[in-house]
Simulated assay, not measured.
Amino acid sequence: MHFTLIANSNFESTSRQVENLKNKTDINEYYRIPILDGLELLNAKSCTFDFPFHTHDTFNISLILKNTFYTKLTDRFLKAPVGTICITNAKQVHATLCDHYIGNSFFTFYVSPDVIKKLNNNQDVFFKDNIIDDQNIFSELYFLSLNLNKSDIHFEKRLKQVLTSLISKYSSNKEFSYGTKQLFQDFINNTFFDTFSLSKTALQFGMSKYKFIRLFKQETGLTPNNFILLKKIEQSKELLKNGNPIFDVAIDCGFYDNSHFYKNFKRFIGVNPLEFQNAFFAI
């Protein structure tokens, strides 16, 4: 009996430690700075949830700060150690897996393709190597990540310089295609996804829903459901940037309620809708 009490006590103590540890995680911060076409940044601190397959209109330049960073692409599985830079190109489908107990810490610069192209003498940019180990570039980007609000460090000038160095050393000018997107392109451009039905859509294409899912994923890198959810998230981001009330945004973008909206928004963006919106209206 005495042994059982000790075991239970140890178990309860360990459970409390795990719970306390998880309560200290996921304290992510989102920023928006009015430079470089509206630079957006994510400071992820001990993030314990996974980001599902998705894309961005921007180049994502992430500094890996704590724990190995795991990224899935459509054709590769990448491991980025602490102290390296992980880059996903604009429109590149990817997912991020985080440690569910200790968490992963990383800092991401979301940089417009137009800005990147301009820094490369108006030539297209593609990073074939997604993991870059360059301590000079890492250190400069890390310094900038710690000094976002310092007016005396010439933040914009230094960021342009380090991005130019990153592009010149590690990118290719060759335009990259993520695959042929002919079969579903008109469908994607002309469909209102709030009324989407998988069975009906597959029937329109003369195929089973399983074949539709397989071919759609081959062409887009995403399942139809994830693609539609991502479209809703992107639509909600624009409405939040314009200052629309969060409840109205949730309903207008086809979410059941605020809880459903908050949960899915954070899965893709890293912070909840209020934290994201605050980044655009912070004084």
Rank of each mutant, 00 (worst) to 15 (best):
F261Y: 07
G221T: 09
T223Y: 10
F11S: 14
Q204I: 13
L163Y: 02
I6F: 08
H94P: 05
L240W: 00
E238K: 14
F184T: 11
T71F: 08
N89I: 05
D252V: 09
F69Y: 15
G221D: 09
V249Y: 03
L73F: 08
K266L: 06
N244E: 11
D75E: 15
D134Y: 10
T201A: 09
L274Y: 05
Y70H: 14
E40Q: 15
S9C: 07
L141Q: 05
I137C: 00
S46G: 09
D129R: 07
R267H: 11
P113L: 10
K79R: 15
A202T: 08
L119P: 04
A44N: 02
F184H: 08
V111P: 01
G254N: 10
S172Q: 10
K118H: 11
L21T: 15
S171C: 07
T14D: 13
E12Q: 14
Y31H: 10
F11H: 12
P224D: 05
S145T: 08
T68A: 09
E140D: 11
F138W: 05
Y262V: 07
L166P: 04
P224I: 01
K169E: 04
L274W: 00
T25N: 10
S259H: 08
F3A: 15
N43M: 07
I132T: 03
N122S: 14
D248V: 11
I233G: 05
T14S: 11
D99A: 07
F3P: 02
D129H: 04
S171H: 08
I102F: 13
E12K: 14
S259W: 03
S9H: 04
L215P: 00
R76K: 15
L183T: 14
F247Y: 13
V271H: 03
C98D: 04
I35P: 06
S15F: 10
Q161K: 15
N10A: 13
D186V: 05
P224Y: 02
Y262T: 09
T88Q: 09
G270W: 01
I85G: 01
E238P: 00
E219T: 05
I137A: 02
N149Q: 08
S13C: 06
L36S: 03
L222C: 01
H54N: 07
Y30V: 06
S199A: 15
E156T: 11
D134W: 08
I269G: 00
